[in-house]
Nucleic acid binder design. Sequence first.
DNA 1: ATTCTTTAGGGGAAAATCCCCCTTTTTAAT
DNA 2: ATTAAAAAGGGGGATTTTCCCCTAAAGAAT
Lengths: 218, 218
Amino acid sequence: MTDEKNIEIAVVDDHSLFRKGLVNLIQQINPRFKVISEASHGQELIDQLQAGLKVDLVVLDLDMPRLDGHDTCKILKRNFSDLGILMLTMKDDETSLIRLLRAGVNGYLNKDVEPEELELALISIFENGFHYTDAMTGKLVNALKDPAEGKMPEINDQELKFIELAGTELTYKEIASKMNLSEKTIDGYRSRLFDKCEVKSRVGLVMFAVRNHLISIE
Amino acid sequence: MTDEKNIEIAVVDDHSLFRKGLVNLIQQINPRFKVISEASHGQELIDQLQAGLKVDLVVLDLDMPRLDGHDTCKILKRNFSDLGILMLTMKDDETSLIRLLRAGVNGYLNKDVEPEELELALISIFENGFHYTDAMTGKLVNALKDPAEGKMPEINDQELKFIELAGTELTYKEIASKMNLSEKTIDGYRSRLFDKCEVKSRVGLVMFAVRNHLISIE
DNA sequence: ATTCTTTAGGGGAAAATCCCCCTTTTTAAT
DNA sequence: ATTAAAAAGGGGGATTTTCCCCTAAAGAAT
């Protein structure tokens, strides 16, 4: 590509030595990268942005005292929705990943990756709005199969159909009619699913199903 | 890479013309691909495998009469766990994707992708055990987030608190106690919210609230 | 004074949940 | 092959919870 635009970046990390090193590294790995601002915690960056700072991307450390990366990200996404956010972290677990994606990060890197991966992530976020790795997707897939709530119970097709209908305003009598089964059978499904999903009410079941993407909310 | 091993493939689709076309296409796009078996539904493939057929990969259509792709995948993963499964589908929604990943598909493609993407998917599954696309990961990430905003009626603080608690497994009596109000007041809130949100049941109210970002699903 | 909002009460029907039971089919263990 | 357990579908009936209709008082706003 010719005539490539500079990518203006802010770096936020509470450890001064690491932050300076990261700023230097970023500017060395690609001449398009211009680090035009540094901050030692999330609130400092937010103050800068509110005072008029313009950047394309933010490289944000997750573990910081005030605000941490997660909370910073949520505020940034609410107030500067076009800002690309790359989160750096030592944490490697699925739960952290999911929390960060929910907060709206555009990319997520472990601190021990090579500089080439960092370059790739920054370019990708700038150009596509996201940076996904197979490792990350694999974690999401694993999280789907074994959710935080414990082992995902086996739900068969009839049970799934019942859950979908339980998430509507149909009474169980109406659901039975729709599924061409007796109300008693529907009650049997309800009972079995309550046990499997460890819930005790229709609302509990439906919320479990939504939380675990068994049904869609549309 | 030199001395590349053939990749033996089975193709399963209930529409004969499409299946034949797909077999030809697969064998044209890469000389390593050897389609050594065809089936018109899931059960037929399972019978073949149980009769001794050996393949590396299965290209499986989702919509088939007996067994469909989803059920076939579950049985295949249980009984032939090393088999790579690439699912083809016209469905594009997050919930279907999630169901398929849970069933254990190693890759997932929309039927209207280019042959190059099909080749890449087959090679990737054979060599890495999975094929992920940014589109797919984007859907997973999107599924993690709270849903898009919709039109909201006026909801005051007490009403919002009630809705949050209505989304739990507490009975209205318990909610009344928790809010230090009488059950009759809670019933008044329920009634007023049903009118405002145009619903007629607790499940309806809670689903409306989730859909419209009034409460979160965590 | 009138109207709206918040809180609360009574009564009763409909719906959900639970507990006991049964039969048939399928699956897994021996 | 046989047997036992689990799954699927279903019954009767009691209790609990939800939903609906009606009413009213107190306080705030117009």
